[in-house]
Design a protein around this nucleic acid. Structure first.
Length: 489
RNA sequence: CGGGGCAUAGCGCAGCCUGGUAGCGCGCUUCGUUCGGGACGAAGAGGUCGCAGGUUCAAAUCCUGUUGCCCCGACCA
C-alpha cells in the first residue's frame, strides 16, 4: 500500500515531491520554476483563502485589485526596497510578436518606452495610488487587501515552497499615527497566528526579524515561524511595519487635525501558497497527505461496496442518504461511486489524498444500519451506527482537528532546544536540527558568522516567552534574551 | 551562477556501447468475470525517438550544435 511514496526517513525531499504528485496537489508546468496547481491543491488554497478573507473582513479590511505591471521607475523610489528585489524581477520590454519562418519572434519595433516590471510585491504601485487617495486624516486609515499572483525570479524552486510565480494576499494599510500602524502590524500577525493554529493546525512562533532578514523597505518585520517534520523552519507569514518609508518615497502626506502636513504610516502583510507546503510538512505521513478537516476540500468520502447490481442499488441509496444527512450537517462529503475503481483502490487513493474521514458502506452495513468509519490520521477502523452518525462524524472531525494541532505542538516542543554555548549549538543543530534558543549579541556580524558556519539563521526574536539576559554564545557579549535559530526553507 | 541528471506512446522506463521492421510496465478503449485495503482474462488504440545540422545505402543509436526541464548547492516568501 502507498508504495509510490518515498519514506520520509529515506529521503525527505523526495517524500515531499511524491506527496505533491500523488495527492494531485500540483505539477511542474512547461515553464521553469512555475507550477500548475491542480484542482485538489487549489481547493485547499480556496479554503485557506476563504478563512483568511473572512478574518480580514472581520478586522475591517476590504479587498481591491492593483495591476500586475509596475512601471520600472516606481521600483527605484524606495532605496532598500529596490535593493531587495532588483535581483529577482521579470521585466516586460516589448508588446508585440511578429511571424517568422520558425514561428514568432519579438517585434523589435515594439519596444516599450518605459519597461514594466511584473510585480514581485505591490508596495510601490499601491503607494503611488494611495497618495492620490489621501489628503486628510479623515481619509485614514486605508485598510486594503488584495488577492493576487506575484513573480520573483528565483534560482531554485520547489513546488509550493518556492515558485517563480505564486498566489498570495498582500494587505496594505495606511494610518495617521505610528501607534496605529504598529497596532495594525501586530493585529495582522495575530490573525496569521490564529489562522495557522485554528485552521492549519500548524503551531507557530511569533517574533520579529533581525535587520538582515527584514523585508526590503520595512522598519520592522514580524513573522510566524513553523517547524517542519524534518527539523527545518518555515517562514509561514509576515507582517511589516513600514514606518513612513514608502510615504516619503511616494510623497504620500495628509493634513492632520492639528493642521500639520504629515507623512502617512504604513503596514503590509502577506501569506502565500507556500503555506500549502507547510501544511504538507506539518502533518503528512509515509502513506500520503494528511489535511486538517477545516481546510480539507472533502472532509468525508463515502465508499460504496457491492458485488452486483442489486447490491449496488441498495448500497448507493444508503450511501446517498448518508451523504445528504452529512451535507445537511455542513460536512463537506461526497460519495465515491465511480464504477471503474474497486473499493481497495479507492481506500488507497483517498488515503494518499488525505481525506480526513472515510466511511465504507457494504451490503452488511445496509442490513445492520452501520458504516465502517476510518480516520486518516490514526488509521483506526470502527463500526458505527447509522443512527446519530452525523453527530459522531462531526465530533470526530473536531477531534481530529484538535489532535493534529496538539501532535504538531508536541513535536515542535520536543524539537525545540536551548544551547548554552556555540559548541552545544552546533552539536544540537547537527544531531537534531529543530528550533534552538540561544543568546546573541545583536550584531549582524555574529548572525552572519553563525549562518556561514552552520547554515542556521535567526528565525526571529520571539515576542513571547522568557527573556532572561545572558551572554552571546559566539562572542560572549551581553544579550538581552535568547533568540530563535534554525535551518530554514 | 556552479555541480549532477534527464529528454523515446498520457505517465514511468528499456533500446544507444556494437547503425538495419520502435519495445516493456502502468494508464486508456471494448467485452466478460470481479468488488469489505491498489482485481483478472481476452481483444484493441496510441510514437515525425526535444530541436537543427552532419556522416551513412540506412540514424532513436555515431558526430557537431542548440533548447528545455528536474535534482543538489549559493540568493530568497
Amino acid at each position: 500500500m502507498a508504495k509510490k511514496i518515498t519514506a520520509r526517513k529515506t529521503d525527505y525531499s523526495q517524500w515531499y515531491q511524491d506527496i505533491v504528485k500523488e495527492a494531485n496537489l500540483a505539477e511542474h508546468s512547461p515553464v521553469r520554476g512555475c507550477m500548475v496547481v491542480k484542482p485538489t491543491g487549489y481547493a485547499i488554497w480556496e479554503n485557506m483563502r476563504d478563512a483568511l478573507d473572512r478574518m480580514f473582513k472581520e478586522t475591517g479590511h476590504q479587498n481591491a485589485y492593483f495591476p500586475l505591471f509596475i512601471p520600472k521607475s516606481f521600483l527605484s523610489r524606495e532605496a532598500s526596497h529596490v535593493e531587495g528585489f532588483a535581483k529577482e524581477c521579470a521585466v516586460v520590454t516589448h508588446s508585440r510578436l511578429i511571424s517568422t519562418e520558425n514561428g514568432v519572434d519579438v517585434d523589435p519595433d515594439s519596444r516599450l518606452e518605459e519597461e514594466l516590471i511584473i510585480r514581485p510585491t505591490s508596495e510601490t504601485i499601491i503607494w503611488d495610488t494611495y497618495k492620490n487617495w489621501i489628503q486628510s486624516y479623515r481619509d485614514l486609515p486605508i485598510l486594503v487587501n488584495q488577492w493576487a499572483n506575484v513573480v520573483r525570479w528565483e534560482m531554485r524552486t520547489r513546488l509550493f515552497l518556492r515558485t517563480m510565480e505564486f498566489l498570495w494576499q498582500e494587505g496594505h494599510t495606511a494610518h495617521a499615527t505610528r501607534e496605529e500602524a504598529e497596532a495594525e502590524t501586530k493585529q495582522m500577525l495575530e490573525v496569521y497566528r490564529t489562522f495557522a493554529e485554528d485552521y492549519m493546525a500548524m503551531p507557530v512562533i511569533t517574533g520579529v526579524k533581525t535587520a538582515s532578514e527584514r523585508f526590503a523597505g520595512a522598519v520592522d518585520t514580524y513573522c510566524i515561524e513553523a517547524l517542519m517534520q524534518d527539523g527545518k523552519a518555515l517562514q509561514a507569514g509576515t507582517s511589516h511595519f513600514l514606518g513612513q518609508n514608502f510615504a516619503k518615497a511616494f510623497d504620500c502626506t495628509f493634513q492632520d487635525k492639528d493642521g500639520q502636513v504629515k507623512h502617512v504610516w504604513a503596514t503590509s502583510w502577506g501569506v502565500s501558497t507556500r503555506l500549502i507546503g507547510g501544511l504538507i510538512m506539518t502533518h503528512s505521513d509515509d502513506n500520503g497527505l494528511i489535511i486538517p478537516p477545516r481546510i480539507a476540500p472533502w472532509q468525508v468520502v463515502i465508499v460504496p461496496i457491492y458485488r452486483n447490481d442489486e447490491e449496488r442499488a441498495a448500497v448507493l441509496e444508503y450511501s446517498n442518504s448518508l451523504c445528504e444527512e452529512l451535507r445537511d450537517a455542513s460536512v463537506r462529503v461526497k460519495v465515491d461511486d465511480r464504477d471503474q475503481y474497486k473499493p481497495g483502490w479507492k481506500f488507497a487513493q483517498h488515503e494518499v489524498e488525505g481525506i480526513p474521514v472515510r466511511l465504507a458502506v457494504g451490503p452488511r452495513d445496509v442490513k445492520n444500519a452501520k458504516a465502517e468509519f476510518v480516520r486518516r490520521d490514526t488509521g483506526e477502523k470502527q463500526l458505527i451506527s447509522r443512527d446519530g452518525i452525523s453527530t459522531f462524524v462531526k465530533n470526530q472531525l473536531i477531534g481530529m482537528q484538535h489532535e493534529l494541532l496538539e501532535a504538531a505542538k508536541e513535536r515542535t516542543k520536543n524539537e525545540t532546544r536551548e544551547a548554552g554555548s556555540y559548541e552545544e549549538f552546533k552539536k544540537i543543530l547537527n544531531k537534531h536540527g529543530g528550533f534552538i534558543y540561544a543568546h546573541w549579541d545583536g550584531t549582524a556580524e555574529t548572525e552572519a558568522k553563525v549562518k556561514e558556519e552552520t547554515k542556521a539563521t535567526i528565525r526571529c526574536i520571539p515576542l513571547h516567552g522568557e527573556s532572561e539576559p545572558g551572554k552571546c554564545m559566539v562572542t560572549g557579549k551581553p544579550s538581552e534574551r535568547k533568540v530563535l535559530f534554525a535551518r530554514a526553507y
